[in-house]
Nucleic acid binder design. Structure first.
Length: 256
DNA sequence: ATGTCACCTGGTAGGTGA
């Protein structure tokens, strides 16, 4: 079973690339973030014609998530139950017995910003909900744009980024707290090339200079950990014409 | 430090968010 996550930075712009990518990689599940489409504008017909089931949850201009799967997803949940959140950031469903949660964790903008407070509160709510989800669904995958670089090795210039949003101790503590629920960062289950990033700023020729951060992650529950056979960042997709600023991340699960 | 992109409102740019 192949699962993937991709922050597409506007599905309206990136739909042709998503369709090409689905055809090329044939994932069983693809979670999208930053679709930036209201639900009435979601291109479900095109994705359905590509042979995929799709669940979506969006809003105008910002955020928006989707769960694309070969077989139908059940027990759909949109956003974190109990959290009063006007922003469309989570979509969850059960696919072939695996609980899949796609999340677009808030960026936080700046440590001095109200958006940073929102991010930290949001992460607390996510963790509390995850605890109940894990109890109900031992086979669980949490993937998406976390907007957190977990360690210095996930940052092209840790000195420049020290204490900045995406890299603060508070955010990293939240990431570790998610891990402590019984999850593993699938990417770190394997040997990986150094300087592996999932996001490169559009500005400053960052991709050309490979100045990026690893902020898109796939966390797998303890029950799935031993079944993970590979986890890679699809860097070539970031070289597309008119690319998203994020590359997809993929994980392979041994069936059975 | 700041060489971009996508979206909005309401324009023949400017603001916001990432």
């Amino acid at each position: 079973m192949k699962l993937a996550t991709w922050n597409v930075n506007s599905l309206g712009v990136r739909l042709p690339q998503v369709l090409d990518w689905l055809a090329a990689h044939q994932p069983d599940v693809l979670c999208l973030q930053e679709t930036k489409l209201t639900d009435d504008k979601f291109p479900h017909t095109e994705l359905s014609s590509a042979g995929y089931q799709v669940q979506w949850f969006g809003q105008k201009t910002y955020n928006g998530v989707a769960l694309i799967s070969r077989s139908a997803a059940t027990e759909i949940v949109k956003n974190i139950p109990g959290l009063d959140d006007p922003q469309a950031r989570v979509i969850a469903g059960t696919v072939e017995g695996v609980r899949v949660i796609g999340a677009y964790i808030p960026n936080g903008q700046d440590v001095e910003s109200d958006k940073f407070i929102y991010k930290l509160r949001w992460l607390t709510a996510l963790r509390e909900w995850l605890a109940t989800e894990l109890a109900a669904h031992p086979k669980l995958v949490l993937m998406g744009d976390y907007n957190i670089a977990p360690e210095d090795r996930d940052v092209h210039d840790p000195v420049l980024w020290a204490g900045q949003v995406l890299c603060t101790p508070e955010e990293r503590a939240h990431f570790k707290a998610l891990i402590a629920l019984g999850l593993s960062d699938a990417f770190r289950l394997f040997e990986q090339p150094p300087k592996s990033w999932s996001w490169w700023d559009y500005r400053n020729l960052a991709f050309r200079k490979n100045q990026g951060l690893r902020i898109d992650h796939i966390l797998v529950s303890d029950s799935l950990r031993a079944k993970v056979t590979a986890c890679v960042i699809d860097k070539p997709t970031r070289k597309n014409e008119r690319p998203s600023d994020h590359a997809p991340v993929l994980v392979d699960l041994d069936p059975g």
